[in-house]
Amino acid sequence: LQLFIKTLTGKTFTVEMEPSDTIENLKAKIQDKEGIPPDQQRLIFAGKQLEDGRTLSDYNIQKESTLHLVL
């Protein structure tokens, strides 16, 4: 599923993930694309901070959802 990642600077980029992927996987993918170390990434969806060990489906993140990346 394609997700939109929006940064505080207003930049938006996309990543391609599976619902079974963990937040950790997502942070690694963001590191590949943007060079931001996972330990500096905080991801927010629907007002909640996402925890590394959980999956996208745990948070009911669907295709074309927008996640906010806070550094």
Rank of each mutant, 00 (worst) to 15 (best):
T55D: 05
L1H: 05
I36P: 11
L26M: 06
L71K: 09
E34L: 15
K27G: 01
S20F: 15
E24I: 12
T9D: 12
D52N: 15
Q40M: 09
Q62V: 08
S65R: 03
T12H: 08
T14V: 07
A28S: 10
M17V: 15
Q41S: 04
Q41H: 11
E16D: 07
L71P: 12
M17E: 01
F45Q: 04
K33T: 08
L67H: 02
E64P: 05
L3P: 01
A46T: 08
Q49N: 14
K63N: 07
I5E: 00
A46L: 11
K6R: 10
G10K: 02
L3W: 01
I23E: 00
L1S: 05
R54F: 12
K33W: 14
N60F: 04
I61F: 07
K6V: 11
L71D: 13
L8M: 06
K48H: 08
K27W: 03
T66H: 10
T12V: 10
S65T: 13
H68T: 10
T22R: 11
T66S: 07
D52Q: 06
I36W: 14
E24D: 13
E34C: 03
L50G: 01
D32V: 08
L3H: 00
T22H: 09
V70Y: 12
G47S: 06
L67N: 02
I30F: 01
A46D: 12
K29C: 03
N60W: 03
E64T: 05
L43H: 01
N25A: 10
V15W: 02
E16W: 11
G53K: 11
T9C: 04
K33H: 14
T12G: 05
I30N: 00
K27S: 01
T9V: 11
D21M: 11
F4Y: 14
Q31H: 13
T7N: 09
I61M: 07
E24L: 10
N60R: 06
E24P: 03
M17Y: 09
N25P: 02
T9M: 15
L71G: 12
T14S: 15
R42V: 13
K63A: 15
K6G: 05
T55Y: 06
L50A: 02
Y59A: 03
Q62P: 10
F45K: 02
A28C: 04
R54E: 05
D21I: 03
Y59N: 03
Q49R: 05
V70A: 13
N25T: 07
E64R: 04
Q41G: 03
G35F: 06
T55P: 06
D58P: 01
E51I: 04
E64L: 08
K63S: 15
I5M: 02
I23V: 08
N25Y: 12
K48L: 12
I61Y: 02
N60D: 12
Q40E: 13
I61V: 09
I61N: 02
N25M: 04
L1Q: 06
L26C: 02
L56S: 01
L1N: 09
L3T: 02
T12C: 05
K48C: 04
P37D: 11
L56E: 00
I36A: 09
T66D: 06
H68V: 13
L8N: 05
K33M: 15
K48F: 15
L69S: 01
T22K: 10
L69E: 01
P37F: 15
K11A: 10
I44Y: 14
S20L: 13
E51N: 06
D58W: 09
L8F: 06
T55L: 04
E24G: 09
Q49E: 12
T12Q: 13
I44R: 07
D52H: 08
L26H: 00
I61P: 04
I30H: 00
T55W: 04
L67G: 02
P38I: 15
S20K: 14
K27Y: 02
N25W: 11
P19V: 07
A46H: 07
V70T: 15
D39Q: 13
L8G: 15
L43P: 01
L43S: 00
Q31L: 11
Q2K: 09
K29Y: 14
S57M: 12
Q62L: 15
L26E: 00
P38C: 03
S57Y: 10
A28P: 01
T55G: 04
G53H: 14
Q40C: 04
T12W: 11
L26A: 02
K33P: 01
K48R: 10
P37E: 10
T55C: 03
T12E: 15
